[in-house]
Design a protein around this nucleic acid. Sequence first.
DNA 1: CTTCTGACGAAAT
DNA 2: CATTTCGCCAGAA
Length: 125
Amino acid sequence: MQHESGKFATIYALVKHIPKGQVASYGMLASLLSGVTARMVGYAMAATPEGQGIPWHRVINSAGKVSERPGAERQRQCLMDEGVLFSKSGKVSWPAVRWQGPPETWLSENGMDFMEFLTIQSRWP
DNA sequence: CTTCTGACGAAAT
DNA sequence: CATTTCGCCAGAA
């Protein structure tokens, strides 16, 4: 995230707000950023720079599962270490661990009014 | 410069 | 229900 501009940088900045023990889907994050798709969030997570405190492991897919790939097991372990529970089929319970969204300071800094945020949030898993 | 390749998900078929 | 389509970033080769 060398150049403070660009889609990825915006995505990383948002991911940093997800607290320990909570998770967000690629789509949830994309819904808060204009011009960003869930796919792009996936691309960004795959390219997450290390050593910058970006909790990449707290981002999973809309089905409530850690996206299958080499390294998925490590991600599940990171989440379990934070107290996130997985069902036998490897899914989390969205109502139990879902991130509720960024703080209001983020909303104002990004020109999003609270009403708009609530509408977006209502479509989350 | 071109091509390739990644941790998605809604809508159409 | 299962499968396909497509959007259009960033960095490496």
